[in-house]
Design a binder for these strands. Structure first.
Length: 271
DNA sequence: CCCAAGACCTGGCGGC
DNA sequence: TGCCGCCAGGTCTTGG
């Protein structure tokens, strides 16, 4: 589930139940994630109060007195609030038990996600230090993307999904933003105009913002611990629609693979 | 440095 | 019903 909107929705959903609470115990049932859950995670987190929660790219950061707990959801991860007596299911790998009687439960069938401890400045952590700007960073503009792309021979879709350039644009929304912008995903990043990058950034923001708003309607699910993320209900123009008719012109949408990822576009609307 | 491909892992689906 | 291959929202790591 996690693209940026899902991570942002998760952040908003769990914050009221976690901020200000004390972690009384950590249950690690399977610490074999993308990286092993640190053996001393309890040492750093047990008995500590969560002072704040924030997001950087698709990483969630929980500020504790002596450092940050950092969680990434990978491809299939979920974080939700459950009760102490909520039954544990197969892929419920880690619980952060809170003094409120709730637990923050990390579930991840594919285990591409991660639960890490950062002792120092998160911005200097190996996984965060090379990241590009956030899509909604007010200082970000089309010129930045234009300049970063000069000399690059990668397809624009790969460029857009490169976290060193810009964070938060995953496969679904890269496809959608390129469609809205009328840009073929195969085009060489270095040969795209400034005006096109300006339009593309606008559409990245529109698509992400709408998805966040859609996700925001299902916040209740995080409390109940059932239900699904909201973005499936959202209207997708191209993602998952290869071989079907373009919603704008009716032409058959083409599906290819770019950088190993499913890529769908309209050869008539996108040039 | 740049770019492409491989790696990690489980589950669901379509086809036979 | 069962087995097989392929696909899936990410991104770090390796190889050329």
């Amino acid at each position: 589930m996690p693209e940026l909107p899902e991570v942002e929705t998760t952040l908003r959903g769990i914050t009221p139940f976690v901020r200000g609470k004390v972690i009384v115990r950590v249950d690690v049932r399977n610490g074999n994630l993308r990286w092993p859950v640190p053996a001393d995670i309890s040492f750093y987190t047990q008995g500590k109060r969560v002072e704040a929660i924030s997001r950087r790219a698709k990483y969630l950061l929980f500020k504790l007195p002596q450092g940050h707990l950092m969680i990434h959801l990978g491809m299939s991860g979920r974080l939700r609030i459950v009760q102490d007596d909520t039954p544990v299911e197969k892929h419920d790998h880690v619980d952060f038990c809170l003094d409120s009687g709730n637990r923050l439960r990390f579930t991840d069938p594919r285990r591409f996600g991660s639960v890490l401890w950062i002792a120092g400045d998160p911005g200097r952590h190996k996984l965060l230090k090379g990241l590009g700007p956030e899509p909604f960073d007010p200082g970000l503009d089309g010129e930045y993307l234009y300049h970063r792309s000069r000399g690059k021979t990668v397809p624009i879709k790969s460029f857009l999904m490169d976290s060193r350039v810009l964070v938060g644009v995953g496969n679904i929304y890269a496809n959608e933003a390129l469609f809205k912008s009328g840009i073929a995903p195969t085009r060489t990043a270095g040969r795209i105009s400034l005006a096109s990058y300006q339009k593309l950034l606008d559409n990245v923001r529109v698509v992400l913002q709408r998805a966040i708003e859609a996700g925001g309607t299902t916040l209740r699910d995080f409390v109940d611990g059932n239900g699904k993320p909201g973005y499936f209900q959202q209207q997708l123009n191209v993602y998952g629609r290869g071989g079907k008719a373009c919603m704008e012109c009716g032409a058959i949408l083409r599906e290819i693979r770019l950088g190993q990822r499913a890529t769908v576009y309209c050869t008539r609307c996108q040039r």
